[in-house]
């Protein structure tokens, strides 16, 4: 709905500032510890370069938002972190991406093991065609851990879904609403207790109410996990993130800083233009 967006643009600008204040006040007081770090990271799809020399340090127990225009390589960057890019035949990664100082592209790193530490939630809710319970326990089971009812409850509570589904754990995950499905996917991701959760536009397919539930949830998740979230929605980034990275077309990371400074006082003019909606 482009017309609505332009109408509310100015009102949103004010909203962003209040959101940032909110985020600042609730920022968790912990020394920044880097979990994920990219150094000179290049990604190619065949001949086309999708990411150019990206350097970034993602802190632990923080929400890091990744924003930027469509096609700038946000999803590509996310897929680099848990090596889901391995599944794309033409994809080639150069440079370094470390998880707790270990380059995840080293020969000896097992992508399967990596993904057990770094979970992911996708843009489109993709519950398995199984019962709610089986969806939640799937990760634990493939990881060879036995799954108890407590695990199911804990994960569903963690995803703020427990109260809505506790009486229908054996019905299909596909019978839930879109927003519930997405929270089920979050429950599925946190059930095996990873360290990092990657989210690729997790709310883009949801209505505002469902989206705000997920946002609240992210706020809680960050107590236990490190969250990296790709979003198209700048208000959302401002509301929920501690750090913001801005990619621009061509795959360049042009700005990475505390969310407040990125939104209030961006260093790069193009970022200012992008944030204020002049392009993108």
């Amino acid at each position: 709905m482009p017309t609505q967006e332009t109408e509310t643009q100015q009102a949103d600008d004010q909203l962003i500032t209040t959101d940032i204040q909110h985020a600042e006040s609730t920022r968790r007081e912990q020394p920044d510890q880097t979990v994920l770090e990219a150094r000179d990271l290049d990604v190619f799809y065949g001949e086309d370069q999708a990411l150019r020399s990206v350097d970034i340090e993602i802190p632990e127990h923080k929400v890091t938002a990744i924003i930027g225009p469509s096609g700038c390589g946000k999803s590509t960057f996310l897929r680099c972190i848990n090596r889901m890019n391995d599944m794309i035949d033409v994809c080639r990664v150069q440079g370094e991406l470390t998880f707790r100082s270990k380059n995840v592209y080293d020969e000896d790193v097992d992508p399967v093991a990596l993904r057990r530490k770094i979970g992911q939630v996708f843009q489109k809710p993709n519950p398995f065609p199984k019962s709610i319970r089986d969806n939640v326990t799937y990760g634990l089971e493939v990881q060879g851990k036995s799954a108890t009812d407590d695990d199911v409850e804990r994960a569903l509570r963690g995803a703020a879904l427990w109260d809505e589904v506790k009486d229908q754990l054996d019905s299909s995950g596909l019978d839930l609403s879109g927003g519930q499905q997405q929270r089920l996917c979050i429950a599925r991701a946190i059930a095996p207790d990873p360290e990092v959760i990657l989210m690729d536009e997790p709310t883009s397919g949801l209505d505002p109410v469902a989206a705000s539930k997920i946002e609240d949830l992210i706020d809680e998740l960050v107590e236990d996990y490190t969250v990296v979230i790709v979003t198209h929605n700048m208000q959302q980034a401002a509301r929920i993130s501690d750090k913001t990275a801005v990619f621009l077309t061509g795959g360049n990371l042009v700005e990475f800083d505390d969310t407040a400074s990125v939104f209030e006082d961006p260093e790069d003019d193009r970022v200012e233009d992008y944030i204020t909606g002049k392009f993108g």
Partner: peptide
């Protein structure tokens, strides 16, 4: 949760050693 026990920079080589795949 998980990270409580794992604070501090880990030695890269032992990073995934808790997962025997």
């Amino acid at each position: 949760m998980s990270t409580e026990t794992e604070t501090g920079v880990e030695d890269g080589n032992t990073l995934f050693s808790d997962i025997d795949l």
